[in-house]
Amino acid sequence: MNREHPVLETRDLTIRFGGHVAVDHVSCAFNRGTLTAIVGPNGAGKTTYFNLISGQLRATAGKVALNGEDITRMSVPARTEKGIGRAFQLTNLFPSLTVRENVRLVAQAKARKGFDLFSIAENHVELIERAEHVLAEVRLLDKAGLAVSALSHGDQRKLEVALMIALGPQVLMFDEPTAGMSVDEVPVILDLIRGLKADADRTILLVEHKMDVIRSLADRIIVLHNGALVADGQPAEVIASPIVQQAYLGRDPDEIESAVGETANA
């Protein structure tokens, strides 16, 4: 592999809420075509770190750079246009609109037609076709006409991934994509993420608790603890590293898998 600039980089990224430092000087670079899992106990700052990268929160100090460009002060939609895509931990969709319309809106945003006031939206057939194509990919096409509020939790998570696919960003950030899903639905989401990973242009960040998921998908694991980056490396080596056992798990590596699995299922 030739050496190239990282797609996404955070430098000394920090956010304070009053006296509490939620993310503490995290410096980390993410390369094209990699999937990095971010792990850590609850309250470690994983979702906050995500929010700083995708722009829902503004950093107190430090920098976020996308393709070398400083995006620390950019708004959420500006970052989305630059190529950062975010799927949320708690399902975060357009509940009163149909499944098809949810995806169509993403296609419409990508086509920059949001300020087209005087044409009929239904006449933009290409956007509807794009939406239905993506829905077929996540196997939701048969539910395209339903309102999102009528979908099961698992289907809503699939739709969340569908929005990400339709957005087609350079950097994809998944925040516990399988949380709360039934056992038989999990593989569908994992296959979808694996499919996205197959595209070498994409850089994927994944917050996840389930160790089997991490093992099967991640090229690299970073560990956050009390807002600070405490470990970074190959999955096997990070799980075995003493710092993780001490700071994050405080026990023997063989117990990790079951312990983390239990937390996620609780």
Partner: peptide, 24 residues
């Protein structure tokens, strides 16, 4: 019923998410 009108409904439903898919 224009693309703009549809976007308004998205903003109404979930302004937070509308921003995250690129709408100001």
């Amino acid at each position: 019923n224009s693309p703009f009108g549809r976007t308004l409904q998205a903003v109404r439903d979930n302004g937070f998410r509308a921003e995250a898919i690129g709408y100001r």
